[in-house]
């Protein structure tokens, strides 16, 4: 959000001329009736998608030649806004002349592209992309009826963001490969969540099975677990660098070095020390310690002893270590 978001968008001004034209004069709105289709020896398919209670509903009509599976005529009816009507109109046009099997391959992206005035400018603003998704969903439904299969079977992957048609697998991969930490980054990398925004988190325009926030959390959790597991395995094999250890591993490692090399001398002098915290700090790794017993008042604890502790830890664990008494 910045300068360009400070006043309301001119939603309708962002529609392409084709969208405006199709809304004002849809070419294919209307119905195809059973008795007419029968007379021609063809098969009628009528499929519904959406509902008035959701704000969008479309009914698609196909007259299919059963010998060739070719859609010889197509019409639609729509309860919806301008972009819903325009998308339905262009969608029926894209169906005519194709076989049912070909028509199923028409996606919402094709519908939106067909509504563009020039190939590089979106036909509708981001929050209206979901209207073209309906056009795609109703095709699947019609094809499912004609071919007598479940319409979900046309979808080979799980689609999380329908507007941009981004699959669950793609999103998971992108998060892993690029070490993404926020939903905004997912949108930047994949466009998922950049349109109607329903898939970002619950409570949007539509209810979803998968939300980007959950996918991100799940993948991050898996990545963390894998990292921890790798660290544990490596440390068991003694092959891990101090910098790559988890915090707990670091504390254990520091304690082990101190137990072995330092503590006995402190105890001999009636003192002791404990590790308070370990924090990465640019090129250093800061280890905060506290002296106990006799050491806490001792002058050498801030000079000689400290030097000894730091040198030992540096040598055994990492040259980046700095020891800071508090």
């Amino acid at each position: 959000m910045a300068k360009n978001d400070l006043i309301g968008a001119s939603l309708w001004d962002e529609y392409s001329n084709k969208v405006t034209d199709r809304m004002n004069n849809p070419r294919h709105q209307g119905e195809i009736f059973e008795e007419d289709v029968k007379k021609r020896g063809n098969k009628l398919i009528v499929a519904d998608f959406g509902a008035e209670s959701c704000g969008d509903a479309v009914r698609l009509y196909w007259e299919v030649d059963p010998k060739t599976d070719i859609i010889v005529d197509s019409k639609f009816k729509s309860f919806g806004c301008g972009t819903a009507i325009a998308s339905s109109d262009i969608m029926t046009e894209l169906c005519v002349g194709k076989t049912v099997q070909e028509a199923v391959k028409i996606t919402n992206i094709d519908v939106e592209m067909a509504l563009r005035d020039d190939p590089d400018t979106p036909a509708v603003p981001a929050q209206k992309m979901h209207c073209s998704v309906m056009a795609y969903d109703v095709i699947k439904k019609a094809a499912g009826q004609y071919l007598n299969v479940d319409s979900e079977s046309f979808e080979e992957e799980i689609i999380v963001c329908e507007c941009a048609r981004v699959s669950l697998k793609t999103i998971q991969e992108v998060i892993r490969l690029n070490d993404l930490k926020t939903v905004e980054e997912i949108t930047d990398y994949t466009k998922a969540g950049g349109f109607c925004k329903s898939c970002i988190k619950p409570g949007g325009h539509e209810e979803k099975e998968y939300y980007l926030v959950d996918i991100l959390a799940d993948v991050r959790r898996e990545m963390d677990e894998e990292k921890m597991k790798a660290a544990a395995d490596a440390s068991a094999a003694g092959e891990i660098k101090f910098e790559d250890m988890t915090l707990v591993q670091q504390i254990k490692a520091v304690d082990a070095v101190i137990d072995e090399n330092v503590r006995q001398f402190l105890i001999m002098d009636g003192g002791n020390m404990e590790v308070i915290d370990i924090k990465p700090n640019d090129e250093y790794i800061d280890i905060y310690i506290r002296y106990l017993g006799a050491c806490s008042g001792c002058a050498s604890s801030s000079t000689g002893t400290l030097y000894a502790i730091e040198t030992t830890l540096k040598e055994k664990l990492s040259s980046k270590i700095r020891v800071l008494p508090i």
Binding site: V46, K77, S78, F79
Partner: peptide
């Protein structure tokens, strides 16, 4: 244009 007033039922 509306589907709410369409006559031919879904198949």
């Amino acid at each position: 244009i509306s589907s709410s007033f369409a006559k031919q039922a879904p198949t």
